[in-house]
Amino acid sequence: MTDFHSMAKVSVGQILGLVEAVDEVGGVADAATISREVEMDVDRLGPILVAAEFLGLVTVEDGDIRITELSRKLLTAGVRERKRIVREIIDDLPAFRLVMEMARSSSTPLGRQEVVQALSDRVGSHQAEDVFNALVYWGRYAELVRYDSESEQLTVRVAQT
């Protein structure tokens, strides 16, 4: 679950962009080439690489980045299909399973404080906030959760497709 916090600062667009960039140079490239290609230094590219690897979209070996079978599916997919693929990857992550579990056993919507508290028991308080932000962002994208930043309440969405 600690790996998940690497996704707090990374966006869907960046990961898809990375996959596209690697695909464009033939599906495999070393990190330095990609870094030059997309005009991003290692500091900024690093978290995106980690997140993409974490999601199983690229493999990193000896500095070589290689896109996976899953990535190829993602590249040819439309907007809705992409969301479905990402949903299938992330709804199995421990952080999501924890929240789904909490939501199922609670009759009312989950409060932000409540979830952050539960997360800090697993990942420590200094990362809990990051994990929560990642959870909401990716959960919203994959249409797994609904979050209202005004009431700070999180609910689980009923899957549509």
Binding site: G13, R82, Y137, Y141, E143, D148, S149, R157
Partner: peptide, 21 residues
């Protein structure tokens, strides 16, 4: 909103979104 892939973010405020979003 669905066509551009923003479903799920309907009630988010702009500051909660990444640049691409």
């Amino acid at each position: 909103i669905d066509a551009v892939g923003l479903t799920g973010f309907e009630n988010a405020y702009p500051r909660e979104l990444s640049g691409g979003m």
